[in-house]
Amino acid sequence: MGGWIKEHPILSFKHGRKVKFYVDGKEYEGYEGEPIAAALHANGIKVYRRSIGLGRPRGFFCAVGKCSSCFMIVNGVPNVRVCITPLREGMRVQTQMGKGEIR
């Protein structure tokens, strides 16, 4: 499922450096500087959080940081919009359950 596009008739993709990052403790690879959501999607990860009220699965939706669907916990900070937050080496990304906690 998903993955990066290897060959495109029109576009050539200039990806950033390949970096490792972690989702709920598991290691994945993505390109530095590109949105976390792009890397998640390419790795087949679609569910980013559980909604506040009904616990419904939520994921990527608007891609422009405007819809609140893609909140995750990134390096311990909840409610990070992963669709517009650039990926960095070693980032720790977690599925967010409900409101999120600050401790």
């Binding site: 596009i5 390109y31 699965p57 994921g59 608007c62 891609a63």
Partner: peptide, 22 residues
């Protein structure tokens, strides 16, 4: 609201800007 339901613009961003197969 299920993951996998995306705006068309969002899909374009994924595939045409970041080269991810949506």
């Amino acid at each position: 609201d299920l993951p996998g339901v995306y705006g068309a613009g969002a899909v374009q961003t994924l595939m045409n800007v970041y080269g991810v197969k949506p």
